[in-house]
Design a protein around this nucleic acid. Structure first.
Length: 534
RNA sequence: GCGGGUGUAGCUCAGUGGUAGAGCGUCACGUUGCCAACGUGAAUGUCGUGGGUUCAAGUCCCAUCACCCGCUCCA
C-alpha cells in the first residue's frame, strides 16, 4: 500500500501541489497547484468538459441513454443574490449555533439542547438533555437525582422551577449541567458555525450588503435555467454544465486536498421530464462511473454506492456516490469523488415559490411563524413549455456533481507506483496520457553528433500542439527517471541511428519498452495515444 | 473544537545546553552511446513563528501556526 506522505512529498518536490501561503506558515484547508499540478487539474477539467459537453453528439442516442439529449455550458458568478442560498436551503443548514462540552468533548446544536431548572440542597441548576417530551422529563429527573446525590425515593426533594425549555433561553451556562457532563459549567458559550463564507457587497460592510461565496456551483445553473432556455433553443432533455470554484468553511479540513475550504466542482444539472427521470438517473450514474474508469482509476478501488433511504437529502429521491478507496482512509473505507443525485423538482420550484420542505411526504413551501413563506422565491415562472405536448411543467433534475480536486487527487493516488528495476526503486506516476501534464519528453541521447539539432527541431514541431519537454541534462537513464516521476507517458530519444534512417526511439513509461518509429510520424503517433476513449 | 505526535538545506533525515550536519536533488564545466554513471566545482538554513529561562537554546519552558493520527463534524 502506498504511503500518502510519499505522494505528498513528491507533489511538493516536483511542483504538483503546495500548501497555500506556505511562506507565512500555511493556511489550513487551502492548497495551491504548482506548474505540473495546474496542468494535471486542467487536463482533468478539460477531459470532463470535452467528454460531457463539447464532445457530446446530440443527434445520436448515447449508449445506455433513453433518448438523445443536448448539453450546454455555463459560467456564473461566485457571489450571487443572498436569496439564492435561502431558497436552496443552504442558509438554514449552514447557520447552526453549537455548544461544546469541555469535559465530554461532545458538541451539540444549541437549539437542540433543552432542560429544566431544578433546585435542591440550596442550589439551583439547569439539567439538560438532548431529548424532549416524556423521555426528556425522565432523563432530567434521573440526572438531577444523581447530581444532588439523591435516591429515587427522595425525588420530592427536587423542586422543579420550569418545564423543559431550550438551552437558548439560558444566558449564563455556569449552572448548566451538560447532556453528558456530571458537573456544571462545562459547556462553552454558543458559537456560530458559519459553513458559508460571508462577505460584503459594496464599500459599507453592513448586514444589508451581506453575501456569500457560493458553497456549490449548482444554484447558478438553476437560477439561469430560464435564461438558457430562452437563449439557446435547447429542448428537454438537456444538461447545463459548469466548472468552477466553491467555498465551504469546513470544520476540519484534512487529508491533503480531499477536504479543502476552497475547491473546484464540475457539475451538471440535467433537466428532463418527470416520467423519464428514473432512466436518466440510472444513465448518469453508470456513465459517470465509467468515466473515471476510462481515465485509469481501477475498479478495485472505485465503487458506485447507492444511498440508503435515510441518507438521502431532504429533497432527493435517489442518490449514488462514486467513491474511491483513498490510501489515507482506513482499509474498506471510501471517499466521495462525485455524487449523482435525483433532485426532483426541488430546486426549480424553490426558486419559483420559495424554499420547500418535505411535509407529510410532499414538498411544500416552508412557512414561517407568520404563515408566510419562510424564504420567498423569485416568483418567476421556471416551468418548461413542451410545444409538442402543449404542456407546461417543472422539469425534474439529475445532478452529477464531481469534485475536480478530489478527482485530481484520486488520479494522483492511483498513479503513484514504486517499481523495482534491476534492484533499484523507480518512482513513477502512471497517469493516463490524457491527464499527464507532460505528454512526451524529447531527448538527444548525447549532446553531440548533430543529435541536439534533430531533437530541437522535433521539439519545436511538437510544441505547437502538445505539452512536451526538452531535456539534455545528465545521462539518459536519469532523464528517463525524471520523466517517470512526473508521469510523462512517452520519451522520444534521438540517437545515432536517427541520422542514418530518420527514426527515433519511443519509450513507454509503464512497460519501459522502446520501439523505433519514423521521425516524421511522431506527432501522429502521439495524437493517437491521446485520443479520448469515452 | 478536544487529545496525541511532528516541524532542522529543495527533498529525506541526523543532531539531549557549547562552531549548523549527511545523503539525495539542483546549478556550472568536463565526460557521455538507452534506464537514477563518473570527476571537479558551486549555491542553499533567522533550526515553523513569537516570547521566556540561561553566560550560552536547534536542544529546556510558554504561546501560536501548519501537517499527521484519533475523537467531533461533514447539508
Amino acid at each position: 500500500m502506498m504511503e500518502m506522505d510519499k505522494l505528498v512529498a513528491l507533489c511538493k518536490r516536483r511542483g504538483y501541489l503546495f500548501q497555500s501561503s506556505e511562506i507565512y506558515g500555511g493556511l489550513n484547508g487551502f492548497w495551491d497547484y504548482g506548474p505540473l499540478g495546474v496542468e494535471l487539474k486542467r487536463n482533468v477539467k478539460e477531459a470532463w468538459w470535452r467528454d460531457m459537453v463539447t464532445g457530446h453528439n446530440e443527434l445520436i442516442t448515447s449508449p445506455g441513454a433513453p433518448t438523445t439529449h443536448q448539453m450546454v455550458g455555463l459560467d456564473c458568478s461566485i457571489i450571487m443574490h443572498p436569496q439564492v442560498w435561502k431558497c436552496s436551503g443552504h442558509y438554514d443548514l449552514f447557520h447552526d449555533f453549537m455548544v461544546d462540552c469541555r469535559v465530554s468533548k461532545k458538541r451539540y446544536r444549541h437549539d437542540q439542547v433543552r432542560g429544566r431548572w431544578v433546585e435542591a440542597k440550596g442550589r439551583k441548576i439547569f439539567v439538560s438533555s438532548q431529548t424532549g417530551g416524556e423521555e426528556g422529563l425522565k432523563e432530567t429527573e434521573s440526572r438531577a437525582l444523581k447530581f444532588f446525590n439523591l435516591r429515587a425515593k427522595q425525588a420530592d426533594e427536587l423542586s422543579w422551577c420550569s418545564d423543559l425549555v431550550s438551552l437558548t433561553t439560558v444566558a449564563d451556562f455556569t449552572e448548566v449541567l451538560g447532556p453528558d457532563a456530571n458537573e456544571t459549567g462545562t459547556l462553552t458559550a454558543p458559537r456560530e458555525f458559519n459553513l458559508m463564507f460571508k462577505t460584503f457587497v459594496g464599500a459599507l460592510s453592513g448586514e444589508e450588503g451581506a453575501a456569500f461565496l457560493r458553497p456549490e456551483t449548482a444554484q447558478g445553473i438553476f437560477v439561469n435555467f430560464k435564461n438558457v432556455c430562452d437563449s439557446t433553443r435547447v429542448k428537454l432533455p438537456f444538461g447545463i454544465a459548469q466548472v468552477g470554484k466553491s467555498f465551504r468553511n469546513e470544520i476540519t479540513p484534512r487529508n491533503f486536498t480531499f477536504r479543502s475550504r476552497e475547491f473546484e466542482q464540475m457539475e451538471i444539472e440535467f433537466f428532463c421530464k418527470p416520467s423519464e427521470s428514473p432512466d436518466w438517473y440510472k444513465y448518469w450514474r453508470d456513465r459517470r462511473y465509467a468515466w473515471y474508469l476510462s481515465l485509469g482509476l481501477s475498479s478495485s478501488r472505485l465503487q458506485l454506492r447507492d444511498h440508503h433511504a435515510d441518507e438521502l437529502s431532504h429533497y432527493s429521491c435517489g442518490t449514488a456516490d462514486i467513491e474511491y478507496a483513498f490510501p489515507f482512509l482506513p482499509p474498506g473505507e471510501f471517499g466521495e469523488l462525485e455524487g449523482i443525485a435525483h433532485r426532483g423538482d426541488f430546486d426549480l420550484r424553490s426558486h419559483m415559490e420559495g424554499k420547500l420542505a418535505r411535509k407529510d411526504g410532499e414538498l411544500a413551501v416552508e412557512l414561517g411563524e407568520d404563515g408566510k413563506p419562510r424564504h420567498k422565491g423569485s416568483g418567476k415562472d421556471l416551468r418548461y413549455f413542451d410545444d409538442q405536448a402543449r404542456e407546461r411543467f417543472v422539469p425534474h433534475v439529475i445532478e452529477p456533481s464531481a469534485g475536480a480536486d478530489r478527482g485530481t487527487l484520486a488520479f494522483l493516488c492511483e498513479a503513484y507506483h514504486e517499481d523495482v528495476v534491476e534492484g533499484d526503486t523507480r518512482v513513477v506516476l502512471k497517469l493516463h496520457p490524457r491527464l499527464a501534464p507532460v505528454k512526451a519528453a524529447i531527448l538527444p541521447l548525447v549532446n553531440k553528433d548533430g543529435m541536439p539539432e534533430v531533437a530541437q527541431k522535433l521539439y519545436a514541431e511538437l510544441k505547437g500542439e502538445l505539452a512536451v519537454q526538452y531535456d539534455d541534462g545528465g545521462a539518459i537513464g536519469r532523464r528517463y527517471r525524471r520523466q517517470d516521476e512526473i508521469g510523462t507517458p512517452f520519451c522520444i530519444t534521438v540517437d545515432g541511428q536517427t541520422k542514418e534512417d530518420s527514426t527515433v526511439t519511443l519509450r513507454d513509461r509503464d512497460s519501459l519498452e522502446q520501439v523505433r518509429v519514423p521521425l516524421a510520424g511522431v506527432l501522429d503517433i502521439l495524437r493517437g495515444k491521446l485520443k479520448p476513449s469515452c
